[in-house]
């Protein structure tokens, strides 16, 4: 019991979260224009098409920005502080928010290559980033 929030999948997002539970990162793509979008939606934000598809995404990326959170927003995250909150640019051309874990917080920097690992949170797996160098 961590008390940390877990995602509640909905009609837009359940394929994504189900794939996570199989340790797979997938991303929504548009059949009409090829746009890759995150987070998943009911339409393509580039061409307005509703003809959308899923495909496997390469579980690697780069830190676009990062911060070391010293003051946790809620009691559930207090124990983790200081922790790294980051925006990760995936190699397949989309951006996600993750924590960068399994390394000292101060070692994380913009441009650092990362790979995706999955954290089990109360039965739902959550994509997280760790330095590629850890592999």
């Amino acid at each position: 019991m961590t008390g940390k929030p877990t995602p509640t999948p909905n009609a837009d997002t359940s394929p994504f979260w189900e794939a996570c539970n199989e340790d797979r990162l997938i991303v929504q793509t548009c059949r009409s224009c090829g746009h890759v979008q995150f987070y998943p939606r009911a339409l393509c934000v580039k061409c307005e098409s509703r003809d959308l598809n899923w495909r496997d995404a390469k579980p690697e990326g780069t830190v676009h920005s990062c911060t070391v959170v010293h003051r946790a927003p809620t009691p559930a995250f207090k124990e983790d502080a200081p922790y790294v909150l980051a925006l990760i640019d995936l190699d397949d051309g989309f951006r996600m928010m993750m924590n960068v874990i399994n390394c000292p917080p101060e070692s994380v920097a913009i441009g650092m290559p990362v790979r995706i690992v999955f954290e089990d949170r109360e039965g739902q797996k959550l994509p997280q980033a760790e330095p590629s160098a850890n592999a």
Partner: peptide, 28 residues
Amino acid sequence: ALTEFGHPQFEQPYGISIPAAYALVAQR
């Protein structure tokens, strides 16, 4: 009020806060 800040599925699980979101902007 703090718990409700951020995207419920794609930001909140990572411990986002308002200062942390602006810090991401500042760092970049």
